[in-house]
Nucleic acid binder design. Structure first.
Lengths: 211, 211
DNA sequence: TGCGTTTTAGTATGATCGTTCTAGAATGAC
DNA sequence: GTCATTCTAGAACGATCATACTAAAACGCA
């Protein structure tokens, strides 16, 4: 009974993601969005609300389309392969991107940081998901003997998260394969169980007073 | 032969650092700076040039006052203590800061990233200095047996740099002692020489085909 | 075909941005 | 004390910002 929408919401949101991802929230103007999405300011406001709402939708779309699938892709992998796969994936995409946009969530985290109550939960929650993924990998790896038990699983997971964020930062200013791979390679070597840990899983476990 | 300046340039620059550090470049307005520095827009422009020039001066002051002294403080320490000291210092200051401003250089790196030709060299150069510090620690540590030789010194240094940046990002959104210390603790444990590496430095070196 | 609705397109609005201009006040050199 | 110079104060400028408004055009359904 009314005129149907002429544009594809998903395509518009993708364009919004591209704008916000590249330039951030503040540096992206409504005019930029109008230009990139191809529709008018009135349509944007009518369909998505104000700029903050559109940013939230774009960020959620980025997370749902970028981070979610990546987590799913490696959650069933062998523990060390899961960590390696996730990080290699990030490195590969970082090097593939000529604009060096990094991670939109990390960028948003630093742009809004602690001061913005609306976006904080989404940002923190996303990082918590990634940390939980790493923690799961580490725990499984410590269980099957592929990841060192010399450090607490929680600390190792945080360590992975820190390296991931460091890679995201480095990728924006020094997007060189040697740099990103070097940081990741050292992390993976640090995670791997020491040779003496791998000789006998059961002996090792009892030796450390577990079970 | 003319009226002397009534304000202290260093104090004004400190106020500018505080503004830019907390809010970044874009989100800091000249009016903010006028309010925080106490002098007028005309005086600001007369003394420091435009907003970009003032930001550059503020960033250089931040680096000279924050990062430079920290590097100097630990460059003569035993290798592992140098890395630990630097990172513990960063963690302590991050937890001390109620505004969770993180590192002004990291913030600037993500705000300007690759697109800004003027600030890139300063940012990249600063990170290079920190990386060189880590590399020096690692090389010395590998030499005296305190740091593992299981990984290339360059990769270990990049690893340290990535963790440092990760801590800077984490500190802005989750400034909790357990989080930051956990990430750092795992890094230090990863850097430390394995027990079997420490039994005999000379034997270890020949065993790996060095010298 | 024509009505009701919702889309478009483009302009208007008030706020704020970085920057500059116009004064006048204050200083050092003579 | 006077002059040249440089400071301060604050208004003013044009540009751009996010957003709202005014019409006209386009559709689904009767």
């Amino acid at each position: 009974m009314a005129r149907p929408r002429e544009f594809d919401e998903d395509a518009v949101l993708d364009a919004a993601v591209a704008c916000f991802w590249r330039h951030g929230f503040d540096a992206t103007s409504i005019r930029d969005l109008v230009g990139q999405t191809g529709l008018t300011a009135a349509s944007l406001y009518n369909a998505f609300g104000d700029k903050r709402s559109l940013f939230r939708l774009a960020l959620e779309r980025y997370i749902a389309g970028g981070i979610g699938p990546r987590l799913a892709r490696y959650e069933a992998a062998p523990p060390l392969d899961g960590v390696r796969g996730y990080l290699d994936d990030v490195v590969a995409r970082s090097l593939d991107d000529p604009a060096s946009k990094g991670c939109m969530v990390v960028n948003a985290a630093l742009e809004f940081a602690a001061q913005d109550a609306e976006f904080r939960p989404l940002i923190i929650g996303t990082f918590a998901r990634i940390e939980a993924f790493f923690l799961d990998c580490v725990r499984r790896g410590q269980g099957d003997g592929s990841i060192t038990r010399a450090m607490a699983a929680e600390d190792l997971a945080l360590h992975c998260l820190a390296v991931l964020m460091g890679v995201r930062v480095l990728a924006r200013i020094r997007p060189e394969r040697a740099v990103l791979n070097g940081a990741v390679a050292a992390l993976l070597a640090a995670l791997a169980a020491r040779p003496e840990e791998r000789l006998d899983g059961a002996a090792d476990r009892s030796e450390r007073g577990m079970t």
